[in-house]
Design a binder for these strands. Structure first.
Length: 261
DNA sequence: GTCTTTGTTGGCAC
DNA sequence: AGTGCCAACAAAGA
């Protein structure tokens, strides 16, 4: 679930519920998700407040009024829950506020991570997190693309190149742009890249407007049709499945013509 | 029991 | 150096 649009929804949720309240207790239920030691996480957050909720790519940053910033990454499956009593089954960490509510980091597959950093810029540099897909400007995007080689889908999903897109939304963007996922970037001209840029922005904005809910995406999206043999919402042809680096992806061979391999 | 899955990382090959 | 592929991590659902 958590690609850029999902994390943006989590960011807004945290902003709405979890700011400006004293954190009385920090529980780490499973040390596996603590990229920074559980003790450091607790000590950095106890008796502090979260002051902001920011997002870069798939990372959520929650700065306190001091130096410390709580960093969340959700992995393949995860979300936030703000609630008073019962914690859901897969809560791996929670912040207990003075009003009795908890902000729960729910992460069934334990592939998410919590970090503490004192500098977001440095954290991004160290973790090699590229420019955010929603924040990058067209000029930068075109410049970077011109220097990149290999296959288009791989580039869009390369977090050090551009951050925020995963398997699902890269499929959607390529479908909307009418480009085959295995298109060689070197075969694209500046007009192609500019068009890809606007489709990327459009897909991300629309996804966020629809609260990143996959069951509630626009009719012209391919996301609801990510099934083999499903019907392409644009041409009525058949959606196909293929693999790239061991990962399944979906596309419409008619709308996304281009070199195979 | 088998296969697949929305993410990341490290190792290997070219 | 940059790129591609695979396995591993973990757990759930088809």
């Amino acid at each position: 679930m958590p690609e850029l649009p999902d994390v943006e929804i989590f960011r807004r949720y945290a902003e709405e519920h979890a700011l400006n309240q004293e954190i009385k207790k920090v529980s780490i239920e499973d040390d596996k998700i603590a990229a920074t030691s559980p003790q450091t996480i607790s000590e950095s957050l106890r008796d502090r407040q979260l002051k902001k909720a920011e997002r870069i790519g798939k990372y959520l940053f929650l700065p306190t009024e001091r130096q410390s910033v709580l960093v969340m990454h959700f992995g393949m499956t995860g979300w936030l829950e703000y609630q008073k009593h019962e914690k859901s089954q897969y809560t791996k960490a929670s912040l207990n506020f003075s009003n009795g509510y908890h902000l729960c980091f729910v992460n069934p597959r334990k592939l998410g991570r919590l970090h503490i950093t004192d500098n977001i810029q440095e954290f991004c540099r160290y973790m090699e997190i590229g420019p955010d897909a929603l924040a990058i400007g067209e000029g930068d995007f075109i410049q970077k693309m011109k220097k990149k080689r290999g296959m288009l889908k791989s580039a869009l999903m390369d977090q050090s190149f551009l951050s925020g897109l995963g398997n699902i939304y890269s499929d959607e963007i390529l479908f909307q742009a009418g480009l085959h996922p295995k298109t060689r970037i070197s075969r694209l001209n500046e007009a192609h890249i500019g068009h890809l840029f606007s489709r990327m922005k459009e897909v991300l904005s629309l996804a966020i407007e629809h609260r990143a809910n996959p069951d509630n995406m626009p009719d012209h999206f391919i996301i609801p049709h990510r099934k083999e043999g499903s019907i392409c919402p644009s041409c009525g042809g058949e959606v196909q499945k293929d693999k790239l680096s061991g990962r399944g992806y979906y596309f419409c061979p008619r709308c996304q013509a281009g070199e195979e391999e």
